[in-house]
Write a protein that binds this DNA or RNA. Structure first.
Lengths: 214, 214
DNA sequence: GGTCAGCTCCCCCGGCCGGGGGAGCGAGCT
DNA sequence: AGCTCGCTCCCCCGGCCGGGGGAGCTGACC
């Protein structure tokens, strides 16, 4: 397995060293640079060409959202950005999505969450569904700690999600796919879980916001 | 009130004359041209500069969807297109939306429906919600005849729809807007009705597809 | 002064939805 | 041969949702 090159962007040096320690403990991860603000992050990214940028939202001078947007304008589309939000006052999340962020993490996430998030985002463009979308929607959606509930959908699940996002009911989906309603419900349960969505409405939102639809 | 300039695009001359008769009976509507296929429609639109194009879907050579898309590329964005679908086998509707159609009508709609549709579409960019979106989704959503259930949402209703489209539950919306849940339900009922949506999922879809969101 | 539209709240109720289990099956991998 | 994963179906159940009524209050318009 090739090394995954990671750039850390956070205004707190302490946080950066902590992250560095966590990530460097993994053989497949290399921290290729650090930045204390958004402008530095873009500059460093241009220089070090990381695969992934762990991007704090709140940073002096140029914030993480803006930096994410700027990174997207680099030739080649720039690195994949995983946005790190401090807490749940994330009105950012929505903006970050539009800025091109590929993943989300709460700062208080566990070490494993960071590692897994980076690996997952690095693997594929199929990582479409940040769990944080839930909070994007439900102001209060407070739930289990801050892990990134990413997961790729199976073919069947994608199919079901597509039909959900066309407004079909469970019974209609069952008819459409020639399945039992119970089966459809199972798929939906998996989809909701993978998307971190509370209900089909939030799933539809995730589908649109992530580009799964369109 | 200024005249609304209408272009008719349908491959059946009979249909065109029928429409012309209906529309010309209204003092504020003028039929400025006719076209028998999509290519002719675009050409005529370029020449006559209509406000509205009544566009049949099924036409020889260049179909209505393609023509709609082409019209959108005219300088100034081109005229507003109201797509006329023959029946409920509208897999077209979805495509038409993406092609930039601003309204929908079933061919068997009443004369008044045509007139109202044109006026409404002409008035504002606020006409966002084609009733046909329902059928877009629910293969079977067969219901009352073919009128265009357009309607502009009130401010409160828009507000509610926006929150629905962020994934909030009724209770959460109530809390957010400092309202009773019953009130929220009332607004939602109105929204669903105006949008021709069966449930909040279809409402969200309509919100996205129509550009209400984003 | 009457009317209408928009906003607010209420009751009842049927039903689909989502969550929690469990379970069998075949394919593919080790 | 085991194991995992994806797909399929089942039961139970609580709850939110959506549909149908009704009703009062404001402010604008005529």
């Amino acid at each position: 397995m090739t090394q995954i090159r990671v750039l850390l962007a956070d205004d707190e040096p302490l946080v950066r060293s902590g992250l560095r320690a966590i990530l460097e403990s993994e053989p497949d991860l290399t921290v290729v640079g650090e930045a204390g603000d958004g402008a530095a992050a873009v500059a460093e990214a241009r220089r070090t060409r990381p695969d992934i940028v762990l991007m704090d939202v709140r940073m002096p001078r140029v914030d993480g959202i803006t930096a994410t947007r700027l990174l997207g304008q680099l030739d080649g589309g720039g690195p994949a950005v995983v946005v790190v939000t401090t807490f749940e006052n994330d009105d950012y999340v929505y903006d970050a999505l539009q800025a091109g962020a590929r993943g989300f993490l709460l700062k208080r996430a566990a070490a494993d969450d960071y590692i897994n998030a980076i690996r997952t985002v690095h693997e594929g463009e199929s990582l479409l569904f940040p769990a944080a979308i839930r909070r994007l929607a439900g102001r209060h959606g407070g739930q289990r700690g801050g892990q990134l509930a990413e997961a790729r959908l199976t073919e069947r699940e994608s199919e079901v999600l597509r039909l959900i996002a066309r407004g079909l009911s469970n019974a209609e989906i069952a008819a459409e796919l020639v399945l039992g309603v119970e089966t459809v419900k199972t798929h939906i349960r998996n989809v909701l879980s993978k998307l971190g969505a509370r209900d089909r409405v939030q799933a539809v939102i995730a589908a649109y916001e992530s580009g799964f639809i369109r």
